[in-house]
Nucleic acid binder design. Structure first.
Length: 434
DNA sequence: TTTCCACAGGAAGGTACGGTCT
DNA sequence: AGACCGTACCTTCCTGTGGAAA
């Protein structure tokens, strides 16, 4: 029988192993690779292969867009868009290497300044990150305290000092909020007239959000999107080609069972044609086989990897939430445990209020924002309901079993026990035979 | 048809905080 | 030291929505 307890500071995790009475001496050893991986690194995101599969047209367009750079002309601003794992960043790395070689041969002074905009979500943070990317580790600037105009001045001064052409590659640009995006590009598009004399600047924007252009002011849009290249999601056969290319160098001969590549490609194709995910699945599946000292990766390993990758990502999100956000998730989890499959925002809020000390509780408005964030992180599924006697309302359903979520919330659950000084709320009750 | 109700969510503003500049 | 800057995180206010009730 599997028992789950929803009690503060006391979670019994389901297990199929009976508890051992006596402590045994642990003996950990490192098994030598049993013939799975030849070069595991080639399955990682950071690896750029010699040739890119299924992206000939995009590479051709990309090359044409950057031709002015090799000829020492003012670069066009280039905008790449397509879903996650559709090869935008891989193509940029690939074409970037070719471009650097070509510029070296033709004597063009090229700086390739690449940052990921996930993390910095304001114009200010992006500009400080760009400055710090250009600078040595011992000469970095702080991420607050300066006047923004001063930072732009500093940034373009450094570009002017370097001379030649600077290409700003802004990956995951869609994670920056609209106002900041417009501010940033307004400055960049006017760099030539306001800040620079000799140096040339161009931007390459990489976006996963297909409608990002709609968020931009019209004058910014016309300068930013001079050349647009769309990356379609990979199809299952294209993903198979990519996996074959990588597995040839990554895995030992005969390490993959029949159908492993096809399964990984199919799972990634279902998830929006994400090549990165397909590679992650194979790497993880290979890890399972190696950990268990087997010499062959099975289809089941790929399926297990799919579960683990998804679950690990969500648990990491939960652990990174603020204290009150975790209270909210816990409130939702307890409602779920009581059989409330889809509680309304208001119900979650009432439960949340029971859990936090009265002088610390946040407003319903804030909790609604939290619930929206959970849906965006894929922790919950949110449904807008119209109708009923109370007009519009939202309902929230956990996308995962309670058990791993409770494990991720262990500290929060313990805190609840302290604040409420009881261990027997009606909602924290034993739930049998899940 | 109008009013009421409960809710969602955008906008504006307050406060605390960590940082730089003078 | 104090003014100033930007950010994070919150609250309050307000408008919009849509079914129920008058």
């Amino acid at each position: 029988m599997r028992n789950h307890y929803y009690a503060p500071g006391h979670i019994t995790v389901a297990t199929n192993h009976p508890p051992t009475e006596q402590k045994t001496m642990s003996k950990v050893t490192f098994p030598v690779d049993t013939g799975i991986f030849k070069n595991r690194t080639t399955l990682k995101d950071s690896y750029t292969p010699d040739t890119l599969v299924g992206r000939d047209e995009e590479l051709e367009e990309y090359r044409n867009a950057l031709l002015p750079v090799v000829n020492n002309e003012e670069p066009d601003n280039t905008f790449l868009y397509g879903k996650t794992g559709s090869g935008k960043t891989a193509c940029t790395d690939y074409i970037g290497d070719l471009l650097k070689d070509a510029c070296e041969r033709s004597g063009v002074n090229l700086q390739f300044l690449q940052i990921n905009c996930k993390g910095p979500n304001t114009s200010y943070q992006v500009i400080t990150r760009l400055i710090n990317t250009m600078r040595e580790a011992n000469n970095q600037i702080s991420t607050s305290g300066y006047d923004e105009e001063t930072l732009y001045q500093t940034f373009f001064n450094e570009i002017e000092e370097r001379g030649g052409t600077t290409l700003l590659v802004l990956d995951e640009i869609d994670s920056i909020d609209t106002e900041a995006l417009n501010k940033l590009f307004y400055r960049v598009s006017r760099a030539r007239s306001n800040y620079l004399d000799e140096a040339k600047v161009g931007t390459i924007c990489i976006s996963g959000e297909l409608t990002l252009r709609d968020r931009l002011d019209t004058d910014v849009r016309s300068t930013l999107c001079e050349k647009s290249i769309e990356f379609e999601p990979y199809t299952a056969p294209e993903l198979q080609d990519i996996l074959h290319q990588r597995t040839d160098v990554a895995f030992c001969e005969g390490a993959l069972d029949v159908g492993v590549i096809e399964r990984a490609a199919a799972l990634a194709a279902q998830d929006g044609g994400d090549a990165r995910k397909a590679l992650d699945l194979l790497r993880e599946a290979g890890d399972f086989a190696r950990q268990e000292e087997r010499d062959e990766v099975k289809i089941q390993d790929v399926e297990r990897a799919e579960q683990e990758v998804r679950s690990d990502r969500i648990m990491q999100h939960i652990r990174n939430l603020s204290r009150h956000e975790r209270y909210c998730i816990y409130a939702l989890t307890t409602l779920h445990a009581e059989g409330e499959e889809r509680p309304r925002s208001q119900e979650v809020y009432q439960r949340y209020k029971k859990m936090v000390p009265q002088d610390e509780e946040y407003s319903a408005r804030t909790v609604r924002d939290y619930l929206q964030e959970f849906a965006e992180l894929d922790i919950t599924e949110r449904k807008c309901n119209t109708g009923g006697s109370q007009g519009n309302y939202n309902t929230h359903q956990l996308r995962f079993d309670e058990e791993p979520i409770l494990r991720a919330l262990e500290e929060t659950i313990a805190e609840c026990g302290v604040h409420r000084s009881v261990g027997h709320h009606d909602f924290l009750r034993k739930k049998k035979d899940l």
